[in-house]
């Protein structure tokens, strides 16, 4: 029955996804409506983008725990530029992306130059950013017309162009964040699977020393991975700010766990048993479908985290327990 096992490993998660979709659409015909499909996609787009970023760090055998707080900090900085400085769309976006690059470089510096283990370095960065995002506004959320510490009213507002990123729909149906997510998924897939840079990143993740001795510039690639992760997180932050239209101090809270979970669930997609872009996107989708379907069937909201955890644990057992790589 090894053949069955191989198939189970390879297609198990996709079969599960398909089964869920069939089940929910029978139980709730509205589930498969065009509108609901895009609601699901929109709900997972930001998480999927973060998952794609963390996939890059996982590929080099790193781990970025700071993605959630990078997204949150980027969101706050974009909002701050727009509301407090009245800086406009471009400045807000560039600031947020700059945050992503900078965080990635610092994470890279800590792990490569200072040799701090990845989990610890990025955990530290996570705390640092969670704290830092509160300082400019003394812990308050940022919204148009907020009063500043000097008593005056903030001059700026969220521009239409900025809000477009989070709220508009292409052809009146496809939400812009979904489009951005799909584009990033394709780019990340091509980069990791088809380019020599991606290949080298996987080589580093599998055996860093051997990759180095085969000529790979290990340090460079680790920086690249963390900068990718930081930038993707800040794109997530921009979309979040654009969707909710304010810089909300608490809205980035679940992003880290959801993003990491999606990337880890992705290990089990098509039996890859390694971080991969398509898997991370599908992992995010799987969680989104499950939560949306259960919500439509009136499952209480407070069970959501439990269900996500259940999917993650099952997927991990798929990957590691059934994989032929372990004797």
């Amino acid at each position: 029955m090894t053949n069955f096992r191989d198939h189970a490993i390879k297609y198990g998660l996709l079969v599960l996804l398909a089964t869920m979709i069939v089940f929910f659409s029978i139980a709730q015909p509205a589930f498969l409506s065009m509108i609901n499909v895009f609601i699901i996609l929109q709900s997972v787009s930001i998480v999927a983008i973060l998952a794609l970023g963390v996939t890059a760090t996982l590929a080099v055998n790193g781990f970025d725990l700071s993605i959630g707080s990078t997204a949150a900090f980027s969101m706050m900085m974009a909002s701050y530029v727009m509301i407090v400085f009245d800086g406009g769309t471009t400045a807000a976006i560039l600031t947020a992306l700059g945050v992503g690059v900078l965080v990635g470089l610092v994470n890279g510096f800590m792990t490569v130059q200072m040799r701090v283990p990845d989990l610890l370095a990025t955990l530290g960065m996570m705390f640092l950013l969670l704290g830092l995002q509160l300082i400019p506004t003394q812990g308050r959320s940022i919204a148009a017309g907020m009063s500043l510490s000097g008593g005056e009213t903030a001059p700026g507002k969220f521009t239409e162009a900025f809000l477009f990123l989070g709220r508009a729909r292409l052809f009146d149906i496809i939400p812009v964040p979904v489009v951005i997510m799909l584009v990033l998924a394709v780019i990340t897939y091509l980069f990791l699977e088809r380019t020599r840079h991606g290949r080298v990143m996987y080589a580093i993740g599998s055996n860093e020393r051997a990759a180095h001795l085969a000529g790979a510039r290990v340090k460079f690639y680790r920086y690249v991975a963390y900068v990718m992760s930081g930038v993707y997180a800040s794109i997530g932050g921009i979309l979040l700010a654009a969707r909710i239209g304010r810089g909300d101090v608490s809205s980035g809270n679940s992003l880290l766990m959801d993003g990491v979970a999606a990337a880890l669930i992705g290990f089990a997609v098509l039996g890859a048993a390694r971080p991969n872009a398509q898997g991370s996107a599908i992992g995010a989708l799987l969680v989104g479908v499950l939560l949306n379907g259960l919500t439509m069937m009136n499952t209480p909201y407070y069970t959501q985290d439990f269900i996500k955890g259940l999917v993650l644990v099952a997927a991990l057992m798929f990957t590691f327990g059934l994989s032929k790589k372990r004797g």
Binding site: L190, T195, R196, R199, V200, Y202, A203, N207, R209, A214
Partner: peptide, 27 residues
């Protein structure tokens, strides 16, 4: 020091000289 355990025989062999099979980094 040399083997990339997650890579196939093929990918292990080509690792140092990927550049010569690539165009704009695409292999």
């Amino acid at each position: 020091n040399a083997i990339i355990p997650d890579f196939s025989i093929e990918n292990n062999t080509s690792l140092p000289f990927l550049k010569s099979f690539s165009w704009l980094s695409f292999i």
